[in-house]
Computed example of a mutant assay.
Amino acid sequence: MRELPEGLAASLAGGVTTLARCWRITRRDGAVIALTEHDEDLTVDGTLFRAAAGVSGSEDAAAQGFAVGGGEMAAALTSELIDDADLDAGRYDGAGIELILADWSAPASFLLLRRAHLGEVRRSEGSFTAELRGLSSALNVVRGRLFTAGCDADLGDGRCRIALAAPAFAGHGTVGAAEAPGLIVAEGLGAYAAGWFTQGRLVVTSGAAAGFATEVKAHSVSASAVRLELWQRPPAVLAPGDGFTVTAGCDKSFATCRDRFANTLNFRGFPHMPGNDAVLRVATPGRP
């Protein structure tokens, strides 16, 4: 059973309550953004919670067993607290959230209701709504080895051992033109064959979107230009001259590991493991 602080318990037992919910968001880079639904700023648990974003929350759902509980929070997008560019750049992906119930007339009385992680974020006309996923959501993450035909290592990690910084696997270029928010004409990649960077990773190194990283959806080469199509649109339009680094892609098949990277000794899949076709196969006269 959860124990309430004496001051908060007395406030709840009274005829009129002076309660406000507060959300403390801790990004993975360590930045802390604190918001409250109260109409004035509150200092709770040593943190200043700002009222400027007009934050509100849904019911806080709990679930039995290992089901994922949670709720939602909504707030305005403001350049001072949470802006569009930070969301687009992924700075809030996986952020930790603490939901606190405080007595705004005596902020020293508060109760930590829930810890959660930021899930799906929806935006519309200057505001956003964020899903709060309970800590049990971590149980849905695959851990350990996967026994599949494809490799379960990440290209360049300690199990794969490919040195992605090598010139053969890392290209440094500049933006020649942005034909669409997620489609650029790349300069400086003429030495690489078409598809070399498909499923690779692009990191912007200069310009308004510096630091932005995303996967490459497609790498095409034509007589006139080299184009990179990105899975995620940058938080700012990529301008001619913006620099980037892009690394080779891998579809995790044995053939790609062998032919592109000459790394068969470190392949972490099971290419000869029977699949569903072997399980569903029926006996046929004259065939083994």
Rank of each mutant, 00 (worst) to 15 (best):
I33K: 05
T247Q: 04
P107S: 02
S79R: 15
G71W: 04
L228N: 00
V282Y: 11
E80T: 14
A108D: 09
A20T: 10
A108G: 06
G173V: 01
A248S: 12
R115W: 08
Y92F: 08
D259R: 11
R50H: 10
A223Y: 07
R28E: 06
G269Y: 07
A95H: 09
A255P: 15
A9R: 06
W231Y: 13
H117Y: 15
L146K: 13
G171C: 09
L87M: 14
F244Q: 03
A210C: 11
S58H: 05
G30I: 10
L189A: 03
A193I: 11
R27Q: 08
R143S: 14
C22L: 07
L8H: 05
S253I: 13
V175M: 04
H219Y: 09
F212M: 14
C250H: 05
A53E: 15
A208T: 11
V141M: 12
L4D: 04
W23G: 07
V226S: 06
A193L: 12
W104I: 02
T47N: 07
A168V: 11
L4V: 00
D83W: 09
S220Y: 03
A75W: 08
H272V: 08
L48C: 08
R281M: 04
D93S: 12
P5R: 06
V282T: 11
R24C: 05
V16F: 07
D154K: 13
A63H: 12
Y192F: 14
D88N: 12
L111A: 02
G134R: 07
G119W: 08
T264L: 15
A278M: 03
A236L: 07
E98Q: 03
A75I: 13
L87I: 15
T18W: 02
V204F: 09
G90F: 13
A208M: 00
L12K: 02
G173Y: 03
F197Q: 01
E98A: 10
R258P: 10
A283V: 11
E37K: 10
F147E: 05
R28H: 10
F267G: 04
E37L: 00
S220K: 05
S124A: 15
G176F: 06
A165N: 05
G286L: 01
D154A: 11
T26Y: 12
R159N: 03
A61Y: 15
R258D: 07
R114G: 14
F66T: 12
E59G: 06
G126S: 07
R123Y: 14
A52T: 08
G241Q: 09
A89K: 12
G15K: 05
A10M: 04
L4Q: 05
T129P: 14
P288W: 09
T205E: 11
D45C: 08
L8M: 06
S124L: 14
L87E: 13
A76R: 06
G275K: 01
T26S: 10
L280F: 13
A210Y: 03
L12S: 03
G173W: 02
P167R: 05
